[in-house]
């Protein structure tokens, strides 16, 4: 009973951690961008204010939409949260871990994508169709890179369970893997150079244009889910590269937090220093990410042979 209570408390703390900490990341990115651009920028906690405000607000629906328009973001949010809970946090491990959980994680992210694209298509707007088409198309290449990265981790650790995959010291291919996963992170979270989250021209957007017609609580769910997804990818990237398993709990937590911060600042710097790519160039970059992961996989394979 006692063990159960401890597990329950741990689960609640973990859940709260994901829910509460996730909206920090976009705030940090915006702060970095403002700092590089010599502005003061919005407060780091801006997204929290936005979420609170949106949750209070009413909803305006398009005349064309079905209930799926509102259910889509809700299911997507649940899927991303579920994927996040599968992810182990250093030596603390995951709340639930089983043989092959990494595949569930990837497919939960796919479920979120399906729901978001479906909700976007509900409105019948050509803008949102454009965004959804881009989202699902570029995801094909990103998915190839992600599966390859996971294969590399599996080969390196000899396991298909997230906890054991992410514990050992990163092998020789860590640099390649990190570069590949970072590119996937940028693509999957629709950051520069794939998409510009701060643009206001519908024709050039991916994620933002898919949610043009959302308002109120559904929009809050979307924004919160997007921030959780960003945090998820950042944690995955850090844990794939840093050997957190060998550290003590406190040191691991510190290293994880520092790593996530570095990744976040990195995203901010990329966003400040690079321009968005032309859409026809996007496949090239994603192919590069795939190849980086592929070479990481080969290095991991060769490393195990020696």
């Amino acid at each position: 009973m006692n063990a159960f209570a401890i597990a329950f408390v741990e689960f609640v703390v973990r859940l709260a951690g994901w829910l509460v900490l996730a909206p920090l990341l976009p705030g940090i990115i915006n702060k970095v961008k403002a700092w590089v651009g010599g502005r003061r920028g919005p407060p780091v906690l801006q997204l929290y204010y936005d979420l609170a405000r949106l949750w209070q607000k009413g909803v305006v629906l398009s005349t064309l939409v079905s209930p799926g328009f509102v259910a889509g973001p809700a299911v997507a949010w649940v899927a991303v949260l579920g994927a996040a809970l599968l992810l182990p946090l250093g030596p603390i491990g995951a709340s639930l871990s089983f043989h092959g959980d990494v595949l569930l994680l990837i497919y939960l992210l796919a479920l979120a994508r399906f729901c978001m694209a479906w909700a976007a298509m509900e409105t019948g707007s050509a803008f949102e169709g454009m965004g959804a088409a881009r989202e699902v198309s570029y995801a094909v290449l990103a998915e190839a890179a992600l599966i390859t990265a996971v294969l590399a981790l599996s080969v390196h650790s000899g396991s298909v369970t997230l906890v054991t995959m992410l514990t050992p010291a990163a092998g020789a291919g860590a640099v390649l893997l990190a570069a590949g996963l970072f590119t996937v992170l940028l693509a999957e979270n629709c950051r520069v150079p794939f998409d510009d989250p701060s643009t206001h021209l519908e024709l050039t957007m991916i994620h933002e244009v898919m949610i043009l017609d959302h308002s109120g609580p559904p929009l809050a769910a979307i924004l919160h889910g997007a921030s959780m997804k960003l945090l998820l990818f950042a944690v995955l990237l850090v844990e794939a590269v840093l050997p957190l398993g060998g550290l003590s709990r406190l040191a691991a937590a510190g290293a994880l937090a520092a790593g996530v911060l570095v990744v976040t600042v990195g995203v901010g710097l990329v966003e400040s220093l690079m321009a968005r790519l032309a859409f026809r160039r996007v496949p090239l970059l994603l192919t590069t990410a795939f190849l980086l992961c592929l070479f990481a996989l080969l290095v991991a394979w060769k490393g195990g042979d020696a």
Binding site: P283, L284, T287, T288, L291, L294, F295, L298
Partner: peptide
């Protein structure tokens, strides 16, 4: 094209190994 030549190069590298 760039993507095909990239894939060719990568495939060639793997084949070379």
């Amino acid at each position: 094209g760039f993507v095909p030549s990239l894939l060719l190069g990568a495939g060639g590298t793997i084949a070379a190994v």
